[in-house]
Nucleic acid binder design. Sequence first.
DNA 1: GAAAACTCGGAAACCGGTTGCCGAATCAAG
DNA 2: CTTGATTCGGCAACCGGTTTCCGAGTTTTC
Lengths: 343, 343
Amino acid sequence: MPPRKLSETPGNVAKPATISEVALLAGVSVGTASKALNGRGSLRAETRQRVLSAAEQLGFQPNRAAVTLNSGRTYTVGMITTDTIGRFSIPLMMGAEDALGAGEMSVFLCDARDDPIREQYYLRTLLSRRVDGIIVTGRRTQARPPIGAALPIPVVYAFISSADPHDCSVVPDEAGGARKAVEHLLATGRRRIAHVTGPEHHHSATVRATAAVERLASDGLDLVGAPMFGEWSEAWGRQAVRMLLGAGSPFDAVFCGSDQIARGVADALQAAGRRVPDDVALVGFDNWDVMALACQPPLTSVDMELETLGRTAADLLLAAINGSPSPGPHTRPCRLVIRDSTA
Amino acid sequence: MPPRKLSETPGNVAKPATISEVALLAGVSVGTASKALNGRGSLRAETRQRVLSAAEQLGFQPNRAAVTLNSGRTYTVGMITTDTIGRFSIPLMMGAEDALGAGEMSVFLCDARDDPIREQYYLRTLLSRRVDGIIVTGRRTQARPPIGAALPIPVVYAFISSADPHDCSVVPDEAGGARKAVEHLLATGRRRIAHVTGPEHHHSATVRATAAVERLASDGLDLVGAPMFGEWSEAWGRQAVRMLLGAGSPFDAVFCGSDQIARGVADALQAAGRRVPDDVALVGFDNWDVMALACQPPLTSVDMELETLGRTAADLLLAAINGSPSPGPHTRPCRLVIRDSTA
DNA sequence: GAAAACTCGGAAACCGGTTGCCGAATCAAG
DNA sequence: CTTGATTCGGCAACCGGTTTCCGAGTTTTC
């Protein structure tokens, strides 16, 4: 049988080298090889070098399971999205993954899809795998029951928060974001501001609406009508504009609870012959590029800085793993991104 | 010192129980406990039960690192997205994660962000962690260089494909999808079809354009003008419509390379007083709900069934891990989702 | 009643590393 | 040349499981 070139071999090839093979090649004992590779013990420089070359030559990578077994550390964290991975989870996950990767940690991805059974299944799996910590994320900022009690490892909630105030949660300051939006509209001279947002039972919708109302009140102003609760869709944005126009109260700005709603509002305003921003200024929420940039005109929007949020959560988790937990809620500011819809 | 309730204890609590603690509690040896828990060996039913109760009582979960160490299996796979996690990667990942989770496998998430250095870093990490296999995904369907040569574990490429035809790749049949779109337009009586799509250097754009042209040719028809290559944006869709109208050639349908383009086309047509679908029928590509459903009217679109693709990739990977590899490219059909824009 | 067959559970090796401890070899000092 | 200090590297225990092998105790058989 002719020898096969490695690159031709299909399927499984070359079992990874073990440290004993390295030791054998270097002519030392396993223990010595370990010391050489980790810079421990006291070895002659020549010996150390011999081991390192042998490891290099064999492409040695330590078996993490073995390392884990006697260090107790897995250098692994679990990331559970309680609801389906989506637009909000992604930047969070990316931020977290980035910060963790820099700390040489790997990330287990768990998509619980709004299913408590799946959630507990993943939790058990992660504990069995002895992850060093867990990040819990979700689509909503609303507080949720803790994922488990008395867990042996630290847990950080990102975006979503835990109902237990002792748990470490990192959340965006949505109320602050709403205030920034209103202040910006006020600063550009608008006084008759309407608010169109998502369903009233949705935490974000009420928080933002309340903050907007209060901020206006502190300047002695009122919203045009009550906050208009509906759904997080363009269709609702369009419908809301028809209702606003039908009501007859004049308005010179609309603060929307999401960019999708804002886009619907923009389209409906244009269809009704109102110019944005000349007749009506428009502010969205989420700063979702696909919506905010494609909108005509491009949309001023509140950015929750989700990637930063994820990074912060990861940093707090790393700190907790290293023995410096930061229990309790942590709020991070939102950023207002100004574009043509309020220019 | 008063006893602290578990739920009050901050930070690390209750170290996970080991099998020797279970054995101690059950009054058997460690080996016997292992057999009882795994249904191996021959034990009296009463003994087995005693061990199981002890394990239950202690909340015993086997340390996966230890299991890995002597089985060689980690029940873990790595998922590398070569470019940033985005709209295409998510359904892929979800499908894969779903199929793998059902097989009791956990998923390491690696976001290489279009950076070959990061990619190789993740590859080394995954190999060091002795994952059982790797799924490589990306944002583009274009073939890419294999992520590594002669790897000791199976690799499956999903959506993206490997330039090495021996590698296992699972890709959508974009050409078939384009043909379905054209056939649908023909079936609804359209004969003067234009094609607006992404940049010419983009693999998907050319594949879809070519397939559309050929399908028309087989009925003795031509596109209205040449395929219009631009970018994957609404703005380009709008611009393309202005160009089409300016050119003066009549057209009764536009097949678009993406839903975003289609939405731009829809808006521009409406602005120009052309009705969709009465004057011009419209078909998109991707079936991205946010675009396809928010479009006015809702958009007929080609769905690449990414979640199924991910699931298929995971199934093929599992099969390969279990010794039944399926080398080579695997094409999966697209599905045409018909909505009002062609009704 | 003794030998053979069978049940059941324990001892120990092993997976692949890490680390504390100890002894051999080398070297300097007296 | 002897003694003491120092350098270097091997031995073996250990992490937490799994699995093989084997033997003690019980039951069956003649």
